[in-house]
Design a protein around this nucleic acid. Structure first.
Lengths: 260, 260
DNA sequence: GTTTACTTTCGTTTACTTTCGTTTTGCAAT
DNA sequence: ATTGCAAAACGAAAGTAAACGAAAGTAAAC
């Protein structure tokens, strides 16, 4: 029999290791774990049961799969992951627009979050944001971070409300990088949260160049709250291949399209 | 038997050494520590228990592993840990002052950070703070969190500067819980950071009752930047046992002293 | 209906907690 | 100085809890 001291690994470590594997591979079989940790099925199953109860993974017959809800703030949802490659192409393009000495606003959202990761090693940049996870992501780099204040929303770790707008109104930014839930010729940019829409509007008002980051899935979609009309935008970076008709419509509104 | 003087190592040194090992190796077993320090399991476990309570590591069955804290700021520094027990007594007393329905401001600092942990299960409270780690600590409870905006300081994860003050000026709070670096009859409350002093002043201006949390080590100390005179305070919760002379001096200034 | 995976129960081993007594130290009164 | 007292550090011992796996029974997959 193997007990903690004789063995070379603590229970806690084994469980952390299981989560790490899941983080990389998304799935893991009980048998693989038995072999890896040189232990029995009972032990592994107990680990999986505990980890499932804590919400860290989801058990299946034969093993376990990733549970996406663990990192609500930072991680992407399943839906968002489908478009991860698209988003990555978009943010790489967006990062090119950020030059030394720039002051930019990063709106909260999964795509702008990725953009934050992308600009980590740029120097002499000031980032204004209302997203706590973006702020935390950037703070260990050489980037100066300004957080808007406001009411902290639990689900998205985002600061919104009148206080956020008060702060934004006292600032001025060269470029604004914006996410959106939906973009539509008739309704413009929309988002599910009314308060968020208002805060985003303020961001638009204090920024020079407005750049929308929108993967293909966002087009033609419409949510509850209107953020702004399309003509407020200066640029859209997207993965959607536009038809000539569409391109000319955007051109008329003064919006430049970059497809990546 | 080996006691401090006969032995070649002090308790404090042993604990620091444990942390150093963890810093390098990420894990350590109780048995290894027993051997290394030539002591008993009880002693080692007491050390680990204390270090875990201070947030420096995470105990496991069989030893301890590194505490992978998301926010470095959350952990107390070695210096701060020395006064941990004092601080805990102070925050327990302070927590009694916070009632359902209250709106309070928590200044940034190690003691107020502990206070945040202490009030986690209170309900229907609104907390205004400029400390990111306090905000993150509280957000998963039922407490409404308002963050001041401002420039994010890397070392302390604190929001300070004119923007923070702009937000604070638009708010009003029943009670302010304040930490300080030094308190002194001649110079009042002082702190090493000039910008922070200004933000704290604003907190004082928008709050009803000003409550200072100060362990014994803070008295008679003086830092660079002055926050306010002592008479601005309504209450000091401290571990320092005051002499009658001191008590009457504070009384003259209208400051109530609670010694815990 | 067979195979494989899983759950539950139980016993063993190791680790942990608690209680209590001893030694040392710091502090204060004389 | 010295004496007396309280607190801290440590460890021994006894009791408690956790980790693990074997075995037997149950559920799921195909």
């Amino acid at each position: 029999m193997k007990y903690v001291s004789e063995n070379n690994i603590f229970q806690e470590e084994r469980r952390e290791e299981i989560l790490k594997i899941l983080d990389k591979k998304n799935r893991i079989s009980t048998n693989d774990l038995i072999e890896k940790f040189n232990t029995t099925a009972v032990t592994i199953r107990k680990d999986l049961a505990v980890l499932e109860k804590s919400g860290a993974l989801k058990r299946t017959h034969g093993g376990a799969i990733k549970n996406n809800q663990l990192f609500r703030g930072l991680a992407l949802t399943e839906k968002e992951k489908i478009f991860l490659d698209e988003k990555l192409r978009i943010v790489k393009e967006a990062a090119k627009l950020i030059k030394e000495g720039d002051t930019i606003i990063l709106d909260s959202g999964s795509t702008t979050n990725l953009l934050a990761k992308e600009i980590l090693n740029k120097k002499n940049i000031t980032v204004i944001t209302n997203a706590l996870n973006i702020a935390v992501e950037l703070i260990n780099s050489n980037i100066e971070v300004i957080l808007t204040g406001g009411n902290l929303f639990k689900d998205t770790l985002t600061l919104i409300g009148p206080l956020a707008e008060t702060v934004l109104k006292r600032l001025s930014s060269g470029k604004l990088f914006l996410g959106t839930d939906g973009i539509d010729f008739e309704h413009g940019l929309t988002t599910p949260n009314i308060n968020e829409a208002s805060t985003t509007q303020t961001m638009i008002n204090v920024s020079g160049e407005i750049i929308l980051l929108a993967d293909e899935s966002k087009f033609g979609r419409r949510s509850l709250a209107v953020i702004s009309k399309i003509e407020k935008l200066d640029k859209i970076i997207t993965t959607k291949k536009m038809t000539d008709t569409e391109l000319s419509m955007y051109e008329k509104l003064g919006v430049k399209i970059t497809t990546v």
